[in-house]
């Protein structure tokens, strides 16, 4: 069986495509409004120290997302650095 990868596990510099979001209605709405929707490509720019949030770029938007929330987005990493 395939292991599900979440956004939280993506290392900085890695790109990924969003496969699905398993969050509550309110949170998923906000994610979609910021461009985090199934099918979007994203790039993890960095992770803050001390288990802090991630900085993620999707389209022309850069977002800060906490690890707990990033764990609700499952993704498919794809090879190659930032496009």
């Amino acid at each position: 069986m395939l292991q599900r990868t979440t956004l939280e596990q993506i290392i900085p510099g890695q790109c990924a495509v969003i496969q699905g979001i398993s969050a509550g209605r309110e949170l998923s709405r906000r994610m979609i409004a910021l461009g985090l929707r199934p099918g979007s490509q994203l790039l993890v720019l960095r992770r803050a120290a001390l288990h802090g949030p991630l900085q993620v770029r999707v389209g022309h938007t850069e977002i800060m997302i906490r690890r707990g929330e990033a764990a609700k987005i499952w993704v498919q990493p794809y090879p190659g650095g930032p496009t």
């Binding site: 906000r30 994610m31 910021l34």
Partner: peptide, 11 residues
Amino acid sequence: SYEPMLLEMPP
């Protein structure tokens, strides 16, 4: 706070 902590980081 129930508000999701997703913050835009504008250029």
